[in-house]
Amino acid sequence: MRGSSFASRVALLLALLLVLACALVAVLNYLKFERLLVAQQARVLGIIAADAAEGFERGINLGVRLPGVPGGQALVERALASDPDLHRALVADARGRILFDTERGRIGEDLPPALAAAAGGAATAGWRAAPIVNGFGQTEGTLLLGHARDSIRARLDAIALGMLRPTLLVLGVAVPLVVLLTFLAARPVRRHFDAFGQVLARGGGGAPPAFAALDASLAETEALLDGAERDLEALVALPPGQETPA
């Protein structure tokens, strides 16, 4: 047995299949986990946003307008501090003017269009809005929480790493194993090919039972050719005039 073999093609195929299956499982799991973590973060943000908005509403209940809520700045600062994923918390009035902001330099400016859309209720990536409703049902303003996905990404990276090492380990064992087993399983067939080849090469020696009939048949043909050749050679060697050999 020498040269390349069909077994390498099969082994390559099976190895690819294993890699593909493991990769698929890893990716499917990863995507599911990502969705779960994002949903979980949304829940936490919902709790924080609702609580902060309620704080402002309690302030309005005291009888002041939103810009005059006592401790408004402290409320947004506290909301920002309650989750490490938050990078900014602000309150804007119904016209879009920023009243309280953890980025103090922005107080007094108008909301940029993206944030204005988020305040209006459009789902905006990275921002969570909670309306601040006054005592007669009018939305006086909106609380906006800006969140990053840093902690989610860190968690997903950790999960990806936690999946990668075992996967590589498993594949590191499985792929060589499957290649080995493939070649082992292929040996009888390769021997079969070899035996077939031997018969075709007329190498002599006994043919295995599987090829006995073919071997005999080919031997018959060769014998016929041998006989014909002998006869013709004999005819050549005859002196002229003689028809058959002595």
């Binding site: 493991c22 799991n29 986990f33 999960i159 936690g162 999946m163 090492r165 996967t167 594949l171």
Partner: peptide, 12 residues
């Protein structure tokens, strides 16, 4: 392989 990889993923 799939079982092992999945188990690792879930525990991670």
């Amino acid at each position: 392989c799939v079982a092992l990889v999945s188990a690792a993923a879930l525990s991670a």
